[in-house]
Design a protein around this nucleic acid. Structure first.
Lengths: 286, 286
DNA sequence: GCCTCTCATCAGCATCGCTTATCGAGCATG
DNA sequence: CATGCTCGATAAGCGATGCTGATGAGAGGC
């Protein structure tokens, strides 16, 4: 199973067209056809129906494998190449929006930093493929429990901080004056589902036993300000680390007391970071 | 980065010899040499020192990537091939020794089952590559928390049971008559480290905050009987699920009360199991 | 000093994988 | 219903790739 073939297979499947895939990949249509044939011959099963072009059951299964596989391959390649030739091209930090606490921002070197805000799941991949030197991911976890990250490559993760989580309520909300809240009491409320900007509702459901937390509005984007504005406008509840939930105009931040979960952020990097990256790692974890 | 090249690279690194690797792979020494050259040219860095043959820093890094990568590749291939041609070759179940509770054994079909006891980490790989149809892994976890498994492929895991954990003490031990024990009180005791037969000490340390649990004797092997005999002989303490800890001659099993961890076992399988495998999944999880 | 072992290098040759060209099937159009 | 168009399969040709076998160049042992 040549990765080359795999790559053309996934683009054919994505574009649902041999000719389109050929154009995108810079091959002839004939070559693409032969690639697919080779794969099907190798695996002993048809992977695509032609006319219309769509994956078969076996093809679907292959697609599930192919993504992570190609990602890992790229990551391995990038990692080794980087280790060989470190051009010291400045420091790139990939982070989820809710991972960028004030103390992180304060710790960044004065110059030469590129900050890249990405959806949470894209961060390990970005670090693995060398798109970023360091990554900051966050999520809900039991106190001092590590986060669960997708393992795309041998990455090192180190905790950089934990803080309480708060529910962000519109200022007039009946529960807004409470000193603390149980998540279970809010399972029937309507929530904002903003997996890229805030904390994924899935985390929340997991922390609470797997149900409830119906979504009122889904927000795809990484802008925290939009999220807090939505919360202030009463479009739904959302969970944020305390430092980001407090002081938002038109809202009240009420700490979650039950279950005992914290907002945890972790630093992700490959092997041995060097130069500015290493210094930042020390500052953030030390 | 052709997986072919990667494969020869890892065997060269393992055998520390081009010629040996050539023999093992069925190539000429010349071909192996060219493979390595191609890889080094591709990645732009030397991967091996010659004379003696040993990986460079970049090579070490590549080795870390190569293992999981090749495993995933095999897994993907095996998975798709299996899906295409299911020869219904009987049912193979791979399991860690401590995952084989009596109720699991009772649930197995009367005939046509191959039971394969493997080290815990090898089980997901066995399932992914099709060496086994189903896997049973176990470990310590907070109640109703899933286990952390290495993700070699898109696998499905489903909990099949949780039970209390006990410390297995030799019959005469001063703590043997206690109704319950705190792990923290035993952190300074001497433990058996039997990652393949019992529960890895690492789990234990993780459950208790990361320290203590010095190892008295390490046992590499998957035989539970040897492990309990060692415990009975006073060679060290070990942790077992209650059902396996009770009734062992010469020992006392004392439940762990603090921290609140359980012995959890999970069933691992790929996509949609069929035939006998599907029935067993239903019986064990339903 | 010679032999041996190991890896690098070179030439030769078969195979592989791409392109160009052509074909046949499905589908819309007039 | 014929025409033209698009899309994928297939055939032929050709250059690149990747293997083998032979030879060369160091390092170490007797």
């Amino acid at each position: 199973m040549d990765p080359h073939l795999l790559r053309t297979y996934v683009t054919v499947a994505r574009l649902a067209s041999f000719s389109e895939a050929a154009r995108e990949l810079g091959y002839t249509q004939s070559a693409v056809s032969q690639h697919i044939q080779a794969l099907e011959l190798d695996l002993g099963a048809p992977l695509l129906t032609r006319r219309p072009v769509a994956p078969t059951a076996a093809g679907e299964r292959l697609l599930e494998h192919a993504g992570p596989l190609l990602l890992r391959l790229d990551a391995a390649r990038a990692d080794v190449v980087r280790m060989a030739s470190a051009p010291e091209h400045g420091l790139t930090l990939a982070a989820a929006p809710t991972a960028l606490a004030a103390r992180v921002l304060a710790a960044l070197p004065a110059a030469g930093v590129t900050l890249r805000v990405l959806p949470r799941d894209a961060i390990p991949a970005a670090v693995a493929t060398g798109t970023a030197d360091l990554g900051l991911v966050d999520g809900l976890a039991a106190p001092s429990d590590p986060l669960r990250l997708p393992d795309v490559a041998p990455l090192t993760t180190r905790g950089t901080g934990e803080e309480p989580v708060c529910v962000l309520l519109p200022a007039g909300h009946p529960l807004a004056r409470r000193p603390g809240l149980r998540l279970g009491d809010l399972a029937d409320a309507r929530w904002l589902d903003a997996p890229d900007a805030g904390l994924p509702l899935a985390h929340l459901r997991a922390a609470n036993g797997g149900h409830g937390f119906r979504t009122a509005l889904r927000y795809d984007g990484t802008d925290l300000h939009t999220l807090t504005s939505l919360a202030a406008a009463g479009r739904g509840l959302t969970l944020l680390p305390r430092s980001m939930a407090t002081g938002v105009a038109g809202t009240a931040a009420v700490p979650v007391t039950e279950p005992r979960v914290v907002h945890r952020t972790e630093l992700v990097h490959t092997g041995a970071p060097r130069g500015a990256a290493a210094r930042l790692v020390d500052v953030l974890t030390g």
